[in-house]
Amino acid sequence: MRRFDPTPLYRATIGFDRMADMLDRALAADLQAPSYPPYNIEKTDENAYRISIAVAGFSAEDLVVEVKENALVVSGRSADEQGEREYLHRGIANRAFERRFQLADHVRISGALHRDGMLHIELVRELPEALKPRQIEIRTTGDRLLQSNSDQAQVAA
């Protein structure tokens, strides 16, 4: 099994250790990851996403969608069937499940909809104003900026 060494990332970046750890976990994960229930992840807009999970046989009351520590956790627990049934063939999987999706910073869940055997979860990325790109004015005249920096240095001394 190959192991990813994130050390070169640490040399040139600050604050991305969580991402490197996540990459390391993804590469170390078992190749036989659970495939039930099947799901799609789609980008619906520049800052909007949708996760669609096939949950045939589950009602909305059987499903739980929650956010824990930057992870979206979707779980389903089927209500116990009343009485025993005798199946000749049981091809519809109606077993309990738990799916986890790691969320990036500033991604929030805007809603969830259960319809026609599908659970659709809407996500939105909302960057705070402080993180949005801004352009800095470059002046060519005046030395007010230099004076204020030297004044601050004298006060600190």
Rank of each mutant, 00 (worst) to 15 (best):
S35V: 14
R77C: 03
A54M: 04
G57A: 14
L127W: 09
Q152P: 04
V107M: 11
L145Q: 11
A54Y: 02
R3A: 05
S52W: 02
I92H: 10
M1Y: 11
L103K: 11
I41D: 08
F97L: 00
P133E: 03
D5P: 07
F97N: 02
L127I: 09
A153D: 04
E126T: 15
A153T: 13
P6H: 15
A56H: 08
G57H: 14
A153G: 00
Q102I: 11
D143G: 07
L103A: 12
Y87F: 13
S110Q: 12
R99P: 03
P38W: 01
L31Y: 03
E137V: 15
S35K: 12
I51M: 01
L145E: 08
E98S: 01
Q82I: 11
A54H: 00
H89R: 03
P133T: 06
Q152T: 12
A26I: 14
V67W: 08
A96Y: 05
G15W: 05
L72C: 12
V155S: 04
S78R: 02
E66T: 10
D21L: 13
D30G: 12
A54N: 04
Y36F: 05
A56Y: 12
S59N: 07
L72Y: 05
H114V: 07
S150R: 05
A96N: 14
I121F: 03
G117D: 06
N149Q: 15
E81F: 02
D17A: 09
V74S: 02
H114Y: 02
E69T: 01
D45W: 09
